[in-house]
Structures are given as C-alpha cells and as structure tokens.
Design a protein around this nucleic acid. Structure first.
Length: 463
RNA sequence: GGCGUCGUAGCCAAGUGGUAAGGCAUCGGUCUGCAAAACCGCAAUUCACCAGUUCGAAUCUGGUCGACGCCUCCA
C-alpha cells in the first residue's frame, strides 16, 4: 500500500491512481530570473524521489513541470539588463536544465513555458469571465471573484472572511472589487516595458496562477492525480489554482496535493530575499560532489524542515562512500561456497519499498538498507559470501540506486596525475620507503583524494 | 490576531501504545609498515518540561516553554 500526506485533507491517506497503474503528475517549476538555490532543488529532488519510487512500483508516469518566465522579477531584471524577456530568461532556463542533470533528476516529460501558453490562458480566463467567476476592471485587468467560489480556502485551511488585509494588498497597484480577489490578467503598465500580449481586455500579461491551471489542464486533463510544490505554494498559489481550474472546468482538478517543507539555513528559511542561500554551483565549486548534495537533500523526510549544514554534506559523502565500498567489495568476491543472500536481499528490498510506501519515509528505508550493509560487511570480512550472494547483493544495490541515484553515478574521472602519484607511491612501498609513501598519500589527501591500501592493491575515492 | 509544523544521544534522524533503527563524530580492540576501509565492543535507564489516561506512553489527552513557517513575491 502506498500512502501520501495529502494537504487537502491534512492527513496521510492511501494513494490510488485515477487510471490503473498510470499517474499524471504536475510539479511547480522554477521562476527563471536567477540560478535556482538548493532549497529549490530540495523540492525537485523530493519529486524525483517520489517519481522514481512510483516508477519502481510499476506506475507509468506523465510528469509536467512548468517554467515561469513571465512575472514581476523576470520582467524587472530583463529591463535592467536591457534584454528581451526571452533573451534574459534563456540563460536561467539552460542553467536549470544543466543543474537538474547534474543532480541526476529525471527530466519531466513536458516543460511548458508560460510565454508559450498565453492563448490557452486567455481562453481559460474568458471561460471564467463568461461563467461569472472573473470580472474586469476599468484599467483592463481581470480578477477572480472569490466570493463566487464557496470552496475557496479549503486547501490552505484559511477563512477568506478572516484574511488579514495587509500592506501587500494596500500597495497593490491594480484595482479590484475586494482585497482578497486575485488577478487573472494584468493590464499593461509602464514598468512592463515591451512585455505584453493582446487580449479581449486589452494589452497586458497573465497573472501568475493562471499559467499552472492552463498548462496542467492542457497536458494532463481537467482531473489528474498529483500536484506537488513547496509548502509556501499552498497559499496563495495552489489555492488559487484550485479555484480557477475547478471554476473553469467544473471538474475535480487534483486528487493529491503533496507539499515539501523548506530547506533552512541557520534555522531560517533559505531564500533569495534573506540572502542566505547556496546555489548548486557554489557547492560544486567548494568541492562537494553532486551525489553528496543529492543525498543530503533527499535523505530527510520531505515533510520535515531540513537545516542545511556543511557537516551534513560531509556525513552524506561518508554514507555514499560506505555504499560504494560495499559495492566494490562485493565485486571482488569469487567464492563458490558461502551464503547466497537470496532471502536476505529479497526481504530487505521488500521492506525498503514498504517503508517508502509510507509517505516516502526515506530515513526509515535508509535505516533498513544500512543495517543490511553492516550485516554484509560482517559476512564479507569472514569470507562467508558466495559469488552468487555477491551478485544478489550487487543487484540489490542497483535496485536501490534506481531510487536513490547516488551510488552508480560517480564521475570517477581518471586523472592521470593521480595515477602517476599512486604508481610512484607503490614503488616506494615496495622499497619500504615509508616516508615517501606517506608523503604522497598526504599530498593526495590535500587535493581531496583518500587513498586506501587493500589486498588487491591501492584504491582511491573522493573525500 | 488567524492557520500550521516541529522539539528523540555531541550532530543529523526513524520510530505514533508493548519497552529506543540508521548515518556522521568520539573512545577502546582486531587488521595494517603506518594509515584508511571493514569488523567487534563502548554510547540515550530515556524521547523539551509538567500533569493526566493506561497493566504499560517518545507515541494518546490537557497545559507550559522553545524553534520555525504561511496569512496575495517565494520550492
């Protein structure tokens, strides 16, 4: 049984897909005005973990992720840099694709951009206006009338009547009937520069929320299985999406709303506005491997706040090395006698999948995995594993890695200078020149290479 | 003010009624030229605090304290 925490009902509930063994999934993607930070990637990695798990369990998944390339920030920054909107966002779209590849995130099947779906958005807004959910204002903007949609506030568990009218609403430059109504179409303003489209209501641009409604419906239909995003999107973004989509189509829209918690730095939300963020590129430049970053962000339950520290990165690298070391040891086994690990492996994989089925309890699953890892190391030290057993162990690691994605992705680029040093040290060791041998080992350590002597010769790994 | 999440060893983190997984770090031992890796052993009489329910509570109930998030930019 697979269970997920559904924000809509605020509880963990059994997952059933609309169509048997098929899942239609929509995940909120990046706004491409800057490089994404690792807090953003925590969301994409949680979605990747979920997707890989569901694939493993035999579901065929259609995954759509939007790319927001029209909003206040993309427009403002493109004007600052004196570029067209598309020219400006192109760089960050490309960076985003590079980064998800680096992190071994499975690509979505569709990456619609907001700028490419203006007609669909206009069409949906028109439907809302025709049905009486949308109204226009004198300046040519269109708003969604919340009071006509009784279910408004259900996802966020907010009562619209009690919503605080704060400074942000007062400072809103667009006219609207009620403070809590949200914008579907924004009339053209001087600060938008040349970014505008023609519409039945005049020149302007779409509001933020409508893009996800239009694009998800376009690819996945009016009723699909899962919609993901960060908890900060629950309100207003997803609440508004539900209102727009259900009002426009009359259908149910989404069965499971699944939200990930934030990544924290110094126990505060990692965000651009607090300037406490790390980008993937920053961490790679500091020498941390993509797998380390992936493991760090993936290995805590997605609904738990995760405080980012460099200690955690170090611990993750060690944990990955432990898995890779087991793999290496299993690959050296060539014994006909011993345990074949058949039943052990079967039980372990079943347990892991069962635990992951409980709302993606990755920590629990890793606990099972590492208990097994310790057991196998113990048997290997006593030469009690047969080559069949080693094969079974390797298969288990491969299976697990189709979900974790951190063991087999090593970019173990052969650096010839490292090989030369290792060879030099081996000569020194044969001559029992321990001083030189140790010197070379320390030299390698300084450039982040750990050298280990094994009965089969020296091996090296990244620190 | 409203809504919500969380508090488990030095750090991270599972466990939601039956007597505390796992990772990292530390310390002893085996192995090693020395290391590293691996293994063995040691490590919370205890789950923020107080009260209650129960044969039994980290887990349920009430309260207290503390941390964080959302309430129209946000993963």
């Amino acid at each position: 049984m697979i269970k997920f925490y559904n924000t809509l009902h605020r509880k963990v509930e059994e997952f059933t897909s609309i169509k048997d063994k098929e899942i239609r999934l929509y995940t909120c993607g990046p706004t491409v005005y800057d490089y994404a930070h690792i807090g953003n990637f925590r969301a994409y990695l949680f979605e990747d973990l979920m997707r890989r798990y569901l694939s493993f369990m035999g579901y065929k998944i259609t995954h759509v992720m939007n790319i927001t390339d029209i909003d206040d920030k993309t427009i403002r920054k493109s004007i600052e840099e004196k570029k067209t909107l598309t020219d400006f966002t192109k760089k960050y779209v490309e960076a985003f694709f590079e980064d998800i590849k680096t992190l071994n995130i499975l690509p979505a099947h569709h990456y619609p951009k907001a700028t490419e779906f203006i007609p669909q958005m206009i069409e949906m807004i028109q439907v809302l206006v025709d049905k009486g959910y949308g109204y226009t204002t004198d300046d040519g903007s269109v708003f969604f009338k919340i009071s006509n949609f009784p279910d408004y506030g259900k996802l966020a568990n907010l009562n619209p009547d009690e919503m605080r009218t704060g400074s942000r609403i007062e400072s809103d430059e667009y006219e609207k009937a009620e403070g809590r109504d949200f914008v579907l179409w924004k009339s053209r303003k001087p600060e938008d520069g040349e970014v505008y489209w023609d519409s039945p209501w005049g020149e302007g641009r779409p509001g933020w929320h409508i893009e996800c409604s239009a694009m998800s419906t376009h690819y996945l239909g009016t009723h699909f299985d899962i919609h993901c995003g960060g908890v900060d999107n629950i309100f207003p973004h997803h609440e508004n999406e539900i209102a727009q989509s259900c009002a426009a189509t009359g259908d149910k829209f989404v069965n499971y709303w699944i939200h990930n918690e934030h990544l924290l730095v110094d126990n505060k939300k990692m965000s651009k506005s607090l300037n406490n963020f790390h980008t993937l590129r920053d961490l790679l430049n500091k020498g941390y491997s993509p797998e380390t970053i992936r493991y760090t962000l993936i290995s805590t339950l997605y609904r738990q706040k995760l405080n980012f520290t460099f200690e955690k990165l170090e611990a993750s690298q060690k944990a990955i090395n432990r898995l890779r070391e087991l793999k290496r040891r299993l690959e050296t086994v060539s014994s006909n006698s011993g345990i074949d690990l058949q039943n052990e492996c079967k039980t372990v994989i079943e347990n892991i999948m069962k635990i992951l089925g409980d709302d993606l309890n990755i920590s629990g699953a890793l606990g099972v995995l590492f208990t097994w890892v310790g057991d196998v190391f113990g048997l290997l030290d006593q030469n009690k594993v047969s080559s069949t057993g080693a094969q079974n162990g390797l298969e288990l690691l491969d299976k697990i890695d189709t979900i974790l994605g951190v063991i087999n992705t090593q970019s173990h680029d052969i650096d010839s200078s490292i090989e030369v040093l290792i060879a030099k040290r081996e000569t020194a060791r044969k001559e029992k020149d321990w001083v030189l041998a140790d010197e070379i080992r320390n030299q390698l350590l300084e450039i982040g290479i750990i050298l280990e002597d094994t009965p089969d010769g020296p091996i090296w790994k990244k620190k």
